[in-house]
Design a protein around this nucleic acid. Structure first.
Length: 833
DNA sequence: AAAGCAAGCTTTTTT
DNA sequence: AGCTTGCTTT
């Protein structure tokens, strides 16, 4: 049977067990994607299952894409009719057909986290729901939890037991859902929740999909939440051919509602389940696996398993500890550079992983310095960047006036002299009449209270209507460029970050990328009828990880979370320090939530097992976090790795981090009694601190204005500190934190010049170089810098610069009447005088 | 009534 | 460091 012979015994068992519930516990790197794809092939080729009856759910679009590709290769025929998609996109697909059964329009829009937040903000304001203890974040969190657990607004309302906060949350939940419905919108959680609701209330719909998906496979099952579980359970209920694949040791999304019990209790829900463990690892060396096993072994309540490999040759795991995060970043960059030069490393097979997005900046700077090409995953998702959201909000407004959030976002962007008060009146008018915000704007004349601003509102409406008219004859790309041009959006961006121009460049480049993206969408073969709504939908569900291409010769920088499911020859885990990883937040809540630390450990496990051959752990003794200097001890996860698996350059690494070595650039360090018998402060002669932050006046830190760095134990109180100093609350002797003194920040040696260059080649978070098939370019305009030109709206001016963009020329004109404007040449339709 | 500026507060992770 | 909020200015 050919292709199945390459599988090991356990893998083969997993492939051949096609019927009934199956739980595959697949350790990291144990070839689970291979198993899944072979299983699909087996179902089709050997069991005569119609591809149409197979559904495979993955976590990210990228994973879905990869699975689809591999299935296509191995199946050959009919592969395209298999549903391979994420939970969210599956649900969208179903809801697009049946949302009307729930009282939504089938063309509902999808709100991202930002959109939901602004909607909720309005609601909280309207009903005065926020208190000192109950903030927006908490309300949103509670509601999200409700949806994850399939608790409806009514059910929640019945269970408030007159608890003060619960009553408020209940009100917020109810109003929020009402508002969503009115806006014909759903948030991420709703997509799953509503699909389950749809299935429960409409047996005919459920049965249709049950009959359709006779064989269901779910990847990354350990990260499903209760609603997702219910979605799957309902679908699989008729034929019970449900195969879930996961690894409880890699469950890292609890904060998002993932319920590790879904995988741990699978056998309780399906007592007849076949359980198969895949423990042979085909990815990493024994040394790396030993380290991973040693770390994860400290967790309780896991399904016992031990990864092993036949790959015995390998280096030890490298450990390097540095004085500062700068040194750490410098090492990573230079080490990668060195290995690359000696031919031992390829950029595309190398990743730097860290706990928080904020850690990327320093590393990024050093990469630029060393000339190492890189790409950053995550941070602010391309589609959550301000400039992109603004432009998309214009497109949404043009597409569908019912989306109040989009309209409000852009009504005064760029500034049109329409302020908060005016908007409030308009909103009240809309509320009274139960009409949309945009419809209210159309009747601005009727709203007495805004009579003074009525003309501005009318101008806005007229502009949007003009776009709608143009939409009929324009391509999407033309429409977007026209929006940018008419609104003077590039101009507005210029005013945004005037302190330094690098951010500005990024933003402009991101706008270029959006144009490329919309053009690529229009020209894509996969879309038969490109529409504005289609584009907006496609864009709504992309995760940042989805855009990584394989072929790029670039080092990837990303969080540990983003790295799940990926593998690299060389992996650097940066910031292996207490309070960084495990995170400060987790350690703070350790008593009330002991499971937090277990999840962090799983995250460490995920990180370590990303490496195939070469793993380097790095840590810094001190680093700047949100304007404070933190002194952290080496991460407990490093200490959990037995010394014999480690190659460490500094044998004294595990002494308390704040005992500085002789070479350290600290002039004075006084010991004070505490857990470690020390703590101290620095003299202010020391200039090695690149502190910044707003500590404009040193009074609260003591007269000396000196540096107060302390090692703290729970009972330690330092009177020189403001009472809000987090240090006094620290309960674990690992934690050492200090505040910087007012000090002239030492010029950071890298900085601007090459950051600016970097923006051109590696646009952070943009799609630079990723969208394929950039089509033909607009011809060079007839005019040049210095020429006098005329514009239909702005009149006559002088061209001050003509810059070549990826798809079009960007022309800057200094108009005699309205000053400088930046626009796209193809759209400005400038006439040379 | 809107825009501009300074102070204050914060997030760890994301479909 | 970045974003929101509140206050002052126009």
């Amino acid at each position: 049977m050919g292709i199945y012979d390459t599988l090991n015994a356990q893998q083969k068992k997993a492939v051949l067990q096609t019927d009934g519930p199956v739980l595959i516990l697949a350790g990291a790197g144990s070839g689970k994607t291979r198993v899944l794809t072979h299983r699909v092939a087996y179902l089709i080729d050997e069991c005569n299952v119609n591809p149409w009856n197979i559904m495979a759910i993955t976590f990210t679009n990228k994973a879905a894409g990869e699975m689809r590709e591999r299935v296509d290769k191995i199946v050959g025929f009919g592969a395209e009719s298999i549903w391979v998609s994420t939970f969210h996109s599956s649900c969208v697909r179903i809801l697009r057909r049946y949302a009307d059964r729930l009282g939504y329009g089938n063309n509902f829009t999808i709100y991202d986290t930002d959109d939901s937040k602004s909607l909720m903000k309005d609601i909280c304001k309207k009903y005065q729901l926020e208190t000192t203890t109950l903030k927006l974040r908490g309300i949103m969190g509670s509601i999200s939890k409700c949806k994850d657990n399939l608790v409806t607004t009514n059910e929640y309302a019945l269970n408030t037991q007159n608890d003060f906060n619960k009553v408020r949350i209940s009100k917020a939940y109810t109003e929020y859902q009402n508002a969503l419905k009115k806006n014909n919108a759903m948030d991420f959680d709703d997509l799953i929740f509503n699909t389950v609701e749809l299935f429960k209330k409409n047996p005919d719909v459920l049965e249709y999909y049950q009959d359709r998906f006779r064989y269901i496979m779910v990847d990354e099952y350990q990260d499903t939440n209760n609603a997702q579980f219910e979605f799957i359970r309902l679908l699989a209920d008729k034929y019970r051919n449900l195969c879930v694949v996961g690894d409880d040791d890699q469950s890292i999304y609890r904060f998002r509602g993932a319920n590790i019990r879904n995988i741990l209790d699978f056998e309780k829900v399906y007592p007849d389940a076949t359980v198969i463990k895949l423990e042979q690892n085909y990815r990493s060396t024994q040394q790396i696996l030993d380290a991973a096993n040693a770390v994860i072994g400290n967790n309780y309540g896991r399904k016992e398993k031990a990864l092993w490999t036949e790959e015995k040759d390998g280096e030890k795991v490298h450990l390097r500890q540095f004085d500062t995060a700068y040194d750490e970043a410098e090492f990573i960059a230079s080490d990668i550079g060195k290995l690359k030069r000696s031919g031992k490393l390829s950029y595309s097979d190398t990743a730097v992983l860290y706990r928080t997005n904020a850690q990327s900046r320093l590393i990024e700077e050093r990469f630029v310095h060393e000339g190492i090409p890189y790409d950053i995953v995550g941070g602010t998702n391309f589609y959550s960047r301000r400039e992109i959201k603004d432009l998309l909000a214009y497109l949404k407004t043009i597409d569908n006036g019912r989306d109040d959030i989009a309209v409000k976002r852009i009504i005064n962007v760029p500034k049109r002299g329409i302020g908060a008060t005016t908007l409030e009146y308009v909103q009240n008018y809309a509320d009274e009449r139960q009409i949309s915000f945009f419809d209210a704007l159309c009747e601005a004349d009727q709203i007495m209270a805004v009579s003074r601003s009525a003309s501005k509102l009318k101008d806005f409406v007229t502009m949007i209507r003009a776009f709608r008219t143009k939409q009929k004859s324009y391509s999407l790309e033309e429409l977007l460029k026209d929006v940018i041009d008419i609104t003077g959006y590039m101009d507005f961006l210029k005013t945004l970050d005037d302190d330094d121009d690098s951010g500005d460049n990024d933003r402009a480049a991101n706008v270029d990328e959006l144009i490329s993206k919309i053009a690529a969408y229009e020209e894509s073969d996969e879309v038969e009828e490109p529409t504005l709504s289609g584009f907006l939908e496609e864009v709504a569900l992309v995760a940042d990880i989805d855009r990584i291409g394989e072929d790029n010769e670039k080092v990837l920088l990303m969080t540990l979370h983003s790295a799940k499911g990926l593998e690299f020859e060389h992996v650097y885990l940066a910031g292996m320090e207490e309070n960084v990883f495990p995170s400060y937040m987790t350690l703070q809540t350790e008593d009330s939530d002991p499971e937090g630390i277990e999840e962090e450990r799983r995250l460490a496990y995920v990180g370590i097992t990303r490496a195939k051959r070469n793993l380097t752990l790095t840590a810094a003794k001190r680093r700047m976090v949100r304007g404070e200097t933190w002194f952290n001890q080496l991460s407990r996860f490093v200490k959990e790795i037995p010394g014999e698996y480690l190659d460490r350059e500094k044998p004294e690494f595990d002494k308390p981090a704040f005992l500085f070595d002789d070479g350290d650039s600290i002039d004075e360090y006084e010991g004070v009694e505490d857990t470690y018998g020390t703590s101290g402060r620095y003299s202010d002669e020391d200039d090695s601190y690149r502190s910044s932050g707003r500590y404009g006046n040193g009074d609260s830190y003591g007269k000396s204005g000196g540096y107060s760095g302390i090692g703290v134990k729970s009972s330690y109180q330092n009177k020189n500190f403001g009472s809000d100093n987090g240090a006094s609350q620290l309960s674990n002797s690992y934690k050492i934190k200090a505040k910087p003194a007012p000090k002239k920040p030492r010029a950071v040696p890298q900085s601007k010049p090459y950051i600016a260059t970097a923006a051109k080649t590696h646009v952070k978070g943009s799609l630079a170089g990723i969208s394929k098939g950039m089509p033909m370019k607009t011809a060079k305009p007839e005019y040049e810098t210095g020429d006098r030109v005329s514009h239909i709206k702005y009149g006559i001016g002088t061209v001050t610069s003509l810059e070549e963009g990826p798809r079009d020329y960007k022309v800057t004109v200094n108009f005699d009447d309205c000053g400088q404007k930046i626009m796209y040449a193809a759209f400005a339709k400038l006439k040379k005088m």
